[in-house]
Design a protein around this nucleic acid. Structure first.
Lengths: 291, 291
DNA sequence: TTGTACGCGTTATCAA
DNA sequence: TTGATAACGCGTACAA
């Protein structure tokens, strides 16, 4: 059952036309839902298509129309959840439109790899490319490579003549920080993400900008790497200090809770978690009394 | 710079042939590295190709050869790290071979979705399909759907006439469990993964089999879901009990350490972590004295 | 409303 | 060693 693809050389639109007793053109019209087809003819053709289980060959169609109905998907990172998740979403959306996704997951973001992948896409005649390369150098490489196809970047910031789709991470970070400040916190620790990643960088900027705007004395953010390992280490390390009353952190969802539970010595009954897109802010509703 | 794809209607093998002063066929021969081409001719053609930056149109090639050099990649789950990571690896491997990957990430593993995706692959004339559907029902659906192309499953167990590539999760789990038993542990807790997932199921079976073989009294495993949330909850819940001396768990890498640190009240200086493919076993080198 | 004929870019067959 | 010519399966003016 795993293969029935013996002989039976795949049938074409001719076969359908012959069996249905019409011309190829009529079959083509039915396929494209063009108006000038008699209802009965259309119904009949559809039935034959259904019975034969025929599907138009997309290579031939691409060749004839010089449109591939294919979108190239370039993903730079293979280990991070964010990019992979976004890739899945793009994939899904494309299929719902009847498009197909040709994907290239790059282990390294060097110029050659990117160029090669883009080249392959070009040979396939993709209608466009979606780039998910939130890392600094991957995107720089992308700029260097001459691109022959239109493309849009996810999770990036727009340069001149570039099209991007992204959250405003800076604004989100500012909102989160403001929230903490308005709660009365003045000693806020920011655990940032890897600064090679655009989103992390923008969040840190937002944090610093808001702290500065509110005239709150700011300590240097801790540079994190989004791993649970680090959450653990920080939790342990920060157990001793307690030089802050709130944390604005980039960590896994629950990791921050674990960290804070460690720090506070007791799990918060109902953690006050504020969700901004891709951001988590957690704090007691008010800072503890100064000792 | 984001698009230079104006007019300039992509050049074809004819252009190359004309400019190089040879026939299309010769260009084609050079491309396929066929033997019967004079060295000087080949060099010249290659140079022209290089200068023009020409790449053969893959749709036309697919049409002429009825081989697409394309592999369909069917991924069932969108949220788990394992499947997505494996997908990236497949992608990478394909591109290194000069093949392209057409991917379909399914949000749900119902029959219709799988069937539709497989249908699309078939229309593209993929040379084969790689299935990454470690979940029970997704694979059942796959069996139900009539498949016209050869396919191989990752992370699954082989049924009759099926081809799979997978770790022997059961053996790994048995080895891990044996390790704990040999260290002298007799009260071992297994935190299992979601039993809808084949790998989790096989690991649990391995654990139970080994415990049974060693005649160690066994408590019912705790059913987990691979989330950090659960690691946290379990850590809190298990704080009171302590009815075991070792844990064999399916959790994120460091999550298990956090959990155990919570339980033990103190971080282990040098955690004894044993890595089996996709398994983590952690234990003190010997069980603590019975109180 | 339906059919005919040609082109899309490449490979394959056969002849030169 | 090279070159004409016919497929490959479909879309699309154009004709009927």
């Amino acid at each position: 059952m795993a293969d029935k693809s013996e002989g039976e050389k795949a049938l074409s639109i001719r076969d359908v036309a012959r069996i249905a007793g019409v011309s190829r053109q009529t079959v083509s019209r039915v396929l494209k839902r063009q108006p000038n087809v008699k209802a009965s003819t259309e119904a009949h053709v559809r039935q034959v298509i259904e019975e034969l289980g025929w599907r138009p060959n997309s290579a031939a169609r691409a060749l004839a129309t010089s449109k591939s109905k294919t979108i190239g998907l370039l993903v730079s990172s293979r280990s991070q959840y964010g990019p992979l998740s976004a890739a899945g979403a793009v994939d899904d959306a494309a299929r719902q439109r009847g498009d197909t996704i040709s994907s290239a997951t790059l282990a390294q973001g060097d110029d050659e790899s990117i160029s090669a992948a883009l080249d392959a896409f070009s040979a396939q005649g993709v209608d466009g490319v979606v780039v998910i390369a939130p890392q600094q150098r991957a995107h720089e490489a992308l700029r260097r490579v001459a691109v022959g196809v239109p493309f849009v970047s996810l999770q990036w910031r727009a340069g001149p003549n570039e099209r991007v789709v992204a959250f405003d991470q800076g604004a989100g970070a500012r909102a989160a920080t403001r929230h903490l400040i308005e709660l009365g916190h003045s000693r806020i620790l920011h655990i940032a993400g890897p600064q090679d990643w655009n989103e992390a960088e923008e969040r840190m900027r937002g944090f610093l900008a808001e702290m500065s705007a509110a005239d709150v004395p700011t300590e240097a953010p801790v540079l994190g790497d989004w791993t649970v390992d680090l959450a653990y280490e920080l939790g342990m390390k920060l157990l001793g200090h307690r030089e802050f009353t709130a944390v604005f952190a980039e960590l896994g969802l629950r990791a921050i809770d674990i960290l804070l539970a460690d720090i506070e010595g007791t799990p918060p009954p109902e953690p006050a978690v504020v969700k901004v897109p891709e951001l988590i802010v957690r704090a007691s509703t008010a800072p503890p009394p100064v000792r």
